[in-house]
Design a protein around this nucleic acid. Structure first.
Lengths: 167, 167
DNA sequence: GCGCACCGTTCACGGCCACGAAACGTGCAC
DNA sequence: GTGCACGTTTCGTGGCCGTGAACGGTGCGC
């Protein structure tokens, strides 16, 4: 996702719109203006005029943060895209993945997954386990990991390589 | 938690030690040096010389991020989140942790913990000790520590980085 | 001083259950 | 046929949790 440049304080309401969209942004702070205050890691600011390299580094940092926090995208054809990587998912695994992405980073119960994967009623009890296993293998290729939360469900999160910031 | 000022690139290895402790830090970047690159939201940098207000704002931002990131949060699925780290807690340990978080930083008596962990009546006397032991090990992974207050109870506090600062 | 009760820490063990993983079979599409 | 998607069976592994027991520090009574 691209980093947006915003003049501060001139474009302060544009900043709020962009923040609501959770887009990374770099505020260009006018001489004499007070810099903005906020805890959002997707926002940074720089006092203008600034050297080219300083601006570039801040933008790159914001972009990297956005990348590690970005949620994967599953299109209607069953293609899962994460950054520049992608895999195609068979029907059942696609539906499971959609349920996991809807609550990306949070626990999804086996029950919800079961209903998501088989809307017309689940097959045997172990079918879900096996499909999670196969889905895990497939998701390694796009740097996603399914973590087990015992007796509660599963959770989708960025894989270890992605967490380290490797592209 | 206080923000540490580090000269860059002179004190680069000090920076790494502080980063390992998850302490917020502001790097003072020398004229002519390349600014550092990293995704850690607890790190920021400023090109020296800089105006007083700029440095103050960056330090305040880092301090605010450290505060919000260091406060543990236990969600309904038994997942304990501290900043970007998390662990899943089994039922008994989850209930103990909830009682400890409700009085974060203060002493919680063994009696209250016992009732919190086993609402339907506690098992043997040793059960609480053993669960506290196991909970301690688990919480190391999210930088939290359970301290014993002899004959009073236990208290939960931020882990090693903060402890080093206090001692 | 000594012994002793109290309190807390840690380990080892066993039962139970959730989950992981391999192997196999079926059916479908190309 | 060949390959893939999918479901089932079966077995192994490891987590959760309570118990018992050994060990050590602290403070008290004598």
């Amino acid at each position: 996702m691209d980093v947006v440049l915003v003049r501060w304080p001139d474009e302060s309401q544009r900043r709020e719109r962009i923040a609501a969209d959770r887009q990374p942004r770099l505020l260009l702070v006018d001489q004499g203006a007070d810099p903005p205050f906020g805890v959002d890691p997707l926002e940074d600011w720089v006092r203008v005029p600034a050297s080219e390299v300083d601006v570039q580094v801040r933008m790159a940092t914001l972009a990297a943060r956005a990348r590690t926090g970005a949620t994967p995208l599953l299109d209607v054809d069953g293609v899962l895209r994460v950054g520049s990587l992608w895999v195609s998912l068979p029907p059942v695994e696609g539906r499971l993945t959609r349920a996991l992405i809807d609550r990306f980073g949070a626990v999804v119960s086996r029950d919800i997954l079961s209903r998501a994967g088989w809307p017309d009623g689940a097959p045997g009890r172990n079918a879900l386990d096996v499909h999670v296993l196969r889905l895990r293998r497939r998701l390694e290729g796009v740097q996603l990991a399914i973590r087990t939360v015992r007796s509660r469900g599963y959770l989708l999160e960025p894989g270890c390589a992605a967490a380290r910031g490797e592209a």
